[in-house]
Amino acid sequence: MAINRGALDKLRELVGGEEADLLELVESFLEEGPSIMQDMWSSCHASDHAAVRRAAHSLKSNARDMGAFDLSQICAGVEARCASGEPASLAEIGDAQRAFDVAITELRTIFNLGK
């Protein structure tokens, strides 16, 4: 399981307990996530480490809220590497992409959202 259900319950409680609000957040993530992922790739190709770090930072927080702890952890690694001044590795970003794909597929299933 790529998504921690407990994290989703916590998020629902945080925004007031309504399922509709949680759904709105998930949909926003499904919409926003791919572009952040895309940013990470393009910034990496352009060797813009600060931008890679920002994208990883953003995806990390969002993934944690959605219960995608694996993705969040990989993003934390990318962010930390960039923060320390090292260039981001394409392999690491590839890991992030795979974890991201798994996470959004599972989120779609959980919330009955088509592709």
């Binding site: 998020l11 957040l25 926003e32 969002n62």
Partner: peptide, 9 residues
């Protein structure tokens, strides 16, 4: 916040 999802949250 620059992230739309976090703003909504």
């Amino acid at each position: 916040d620059d992230s739309r999802t976090i703003r909504i949250k």
